[in-house]
Amino acid sequence: MQTGKGNLITDVPGLLVGNAADAGLKSGVTCLVGDRPFTAGVHIMGGAPGTRETDLLSPDKTVEQVDALVLSGGSAFGLDAASGVADGLRSAGRGFEVGGMRVPIVPGAILFDLLNGGDKDWADNPYKGLGRLAFDGAGATFGLGTEGAGTGATTAQLKGGLGSASVVLPSGVTVGALVAVNALGSAIVGDGPNFWAAPWEMEAEFGGRGVAPDWPDPHAAVTKMGGGGNTTIGIVATDAALTQAQCTRLATAAHDGFARALVPSHTPLDGDLIFAAATGDRTLGDPVSEQLLIGHAAAICMARAVARGVYSATAAPGDPFPAWVDRFGT
């Protein structure tokens, strides 16, 4: 396996990502948009999720394709970010056709970053505007770390952030991951600097520190209990042709990436959620074995993306936690 050209989820052809953030707010929005509707699924394993239109992604529902997926800070307020993305799609003539009307389908998920030191005393909800800005700025390249939905994210010991990674399978299928890391648990082993995700690192993408030389007590877990909020939300994507049910299975498999990169993960106080997107450009020759490999690759990409998000974070005034780079250097 090798990484895609940009080592980003946008290595999947036809997908673009946009970020928007407010430095004073210490929060932001990330949206993934296709050049045409794409098949999507979702799987939720955290105990405290915040979502919009995820029921629509169940395999038994009528609408099988969506126009965009949104990750946002702001807790429940951040759900309004999808409205801004929907406005942008409507202006572009996009959406599910109903009797001559176009209704953009934009599922979304949020993380809790209201206690991260930013100015949350707004008169009007800012997330719809941030959603529109993210949509308008969508492109093939985008920033990692303290960007978009990862702007105000935190983990147990360090700032969180926005991460992404990709891989190209021997079959030519591309798989990518995008994640906003705001976990109750920790991305580093013990006191660091090594990442839990180190066994899956490619091309020193998060520092090349390797596996931790000393393994901590496996029964102990470092968390940020009592400080701030949590939730890690992400998207995995592929150019393979998958059904909505297969996308749901892909999202389920990708949760292994959370468990490999964050300890603990999927807790009652996290809203851990993963969307899956399939553009359908590549027909699978052997659907069973190839789908297995795509799910395995998605989990690996997600673990790497989590570590890249934390590794790429940068400091801002009033942060409750240091950035990895400030604590451990490059």
Score class of each variant (00 low, 15 high):
T51P: 04
A92M: 08
G74F: 11
L89R: 08
G117F: 13
D124K: 11
G95Q: 02
G137P: 04
A241T: 09
G4I: 06
V288L: 15
S171K: 07
T248M: 11
V222N: 01
W215S: 07
D191M: 13
I294N: 03
A305W: 10
A241P: 06
G47L: 15
G309E: 04
F135D: 02
D319H: 08
D22L: 10
Q246K: 12
T62C: 05
G150S: 09
Q244H: 05
N7G: 06
A183M: 02
G148W: 07
L162H: 05
K26Q: 06
S91H: 13
I44T: 00
L79V: 12
L16I: 00
L262C: 05
N7S: 10
F321P: 06
L262Q: 04
G73C: 03
R209I: 10
P13Q: 06
G227A: 14
K159S: 10
E53W: 11
V310T: 09
L56F: 00
H255W: 06
P13C: 02
G229I: 10
D35G: 09
G143K: 09
I105Y: 06
D67G: 12
A313S: 11
V168Q: 13
G192R: 06
R102K: 15
A313L: 12
G46Q: 08
W122L: 08
D121Q: 13
V85W: 03
E205V: 14
T39D: 09
P264D: 11
V325R: 05
G137L: 07
G143R: 11
T154K: 11
G93C: 10
P170N: 04
A315P: 10
T39H: 10
T238F: 08
L133I: 14
A134C: 05
L292D: 01
E147F: 01
V236Y: 00
L293E: 13
W215I: 07
L158Y: 08
R52H: 06
S72Y: 01
A297S: 11
G226L: 02
T154E: 14
T248C: 15
G118W: 12
V310K: 07
L250N: 12
A140R: 04
L15E: 10
S75H: 06
V168A: 12
M1F: 00
S72H: 08
D270H: 06
T252C: 15
T231C: 00
P264C: 12
A165T: 03
I233H: 00
A81N: 09
A253W: 02
A299G: 15
A20K: 07
G148C: 09
L69E: 03
M45N: 14
V103F: 15
H296L: 11
G192V: 05
S171D: 14
W215G: 03
G271W: 07
E147K: 14
V310R: 02
P264W: 11
K224R: 15
L25M: 10
A123H: 03
L16Y: 05
T155A: 12
C31Y: 03
A82D: 00
T3V: 14
T154H: 01
A316G: 12
D272K: 14
A20Q: 04
V85C: 11
P264T: 12
P317M: 05
M225K: 15
A305C: 06
A48S: 14
G190D: 07
D217S: 05
L8M: 02
G148Y: 01
L273E: 04
L169H: 05
Q65L: 02
G50P: 03
F77W: 10
L69P: 01
W215K: 13
A323H: 05
V98N: 00
G24Y: 04
P104A: 13
L25V: 00
V179C: 03
